[in-house]
Design a protein around this nucleic acid. Structure first.
Lengths: 191, 191
DNA sequence: TTGTTAGTGTGTCATCTGACACATTTTTTT
DNA sequence: AAAAAAATGTGTCAGATGACACACTAACAA
């Protein structure tokens, strides 16, 4: 629960009463490695805060090959916002890559929060902005960089991901083949 | 003004009174090709709606080379949200690639809107979500595709950009060199 | 006109990458 | 333990790309 509290505090200072109110909206949840938080073709009805663990978001291309869209490392929020807020079927799945500790905010609780008063509405708006900007910056940072740099960024910034995710999934995440990632990894370790 | 009204209507149905109220917050503005809407190192104090025209967002890498971050085609909203909402200096510049028709929403008006009542707060939240999700989807769509596909997507989806933006800026946008883009373009036209 | 500059076209070459084939290792199942 | 399946390691090769050099063209200024 520490990571979640820290996250909320970093968004805005909250009285302990406000913090308790906010936490009362969320439900604690532990899931084992391999569990799906949401799945392709279904509507996403929850927002998750990833307190501890790693999540894998992916879909499939024309050839039926699995394509990694993102790898999330705790602490951070996670949902398919497009599916969640527009009530559309999701185009991706999200699966735990490790045992995970999560906090779940249901759509019902989300709506009651957003519609309760303007302060909470603006608080949620801030979190949404922060989370989307984070993901956008991460995505743009990888784009237009050679694969080797993308890999080294991962090594430096998110070593936990390297330790817990298979080579082929990381390769897909970095936009390359498993063979190429293997060669890059070998060349880096040799040096 | 049509594009702006259509955009607002697509977000949520608005009474003509509400629409007028909203429009009264925005200031019409025409700028000539080459005009900067905001610049690297400054704080971004406005949100723009691009009614007509094309915008170029860019910064510079370690070697001092200009790097295109995005090319915006009307109609759409445009700002550096990170700078705007966190009052941080922007890390990029935004310049008109054509003469542009814009509507400007100042930070003052934005704040008064967001804090006026919960309905407007949630309306603005929706627009923020829609705009960020759009940009995220655009970015992810380009990522991990061969350059040729990125170019063809541009040809099919945003031909106006090809007609109004120089080859080297498009090359930078697509994450390649001007020479490579030139060869791709030649091979496409030959076919 | 002339000169200057920015933008674009093109050839060459080293390097990176993807695709394929197959060996080896690790994990899972029986 | 044995068999099967999944994941990873490796060689080869064709094709894509970046870097560099230089020619050509267009736009603009003197």
């Amino acid at each position: 629960m520490e990571a979640l509290k820290n996250f909320f505090s970093s968004v805005e200072h909250l009285s302990s009463k406000d913090m308790d109110f906010l936490l009362s909206k969320l439900e604690s949840k532990k899931v084992a490695k391999g569990t799906a938080l949401f799945e392709l073709g279904e509507m996403v009805k929850d927002i998750y805060f990833l307190e501890d663990g790693i999540l894998h978001r992916f879909n499939y291309n024309d050839l039926g090959e699995q394509k990694t869209l993102s790898l999330h490392e705790s602490p951070r929020f996670c949902t398919d916002l497009e599916s969640f807020s527009k009530a559309k079927k999701s185009t991706e799945s999200c699966v735990a890559m490790t045992d995970c500790t999560l906090y779940r905010l249901s759509k019902t609780e989300y709506n009651s929060l957003v519609n309760s008063n303007i302060r909470w509405s603006n608080f949620v708006k801030k979190i949404t902005e922060i989370s989307l900007i984070l993901e956008l910056n991460e995505t743009k940072n990888r784009a237009n960089k050679p694969i080797k740099e993308r890999y080294l960024d991962l090594v430096n910034r998110q070593p936990r991901i390297l330790q817990n995710v298979s080579l082929q999934i990381i390769a897909s995440y970095l936009g390359t083949s498993r063979e190429t990632l293997h060669r890059i990894r070998r060349s880096v370790h040799a040096a």
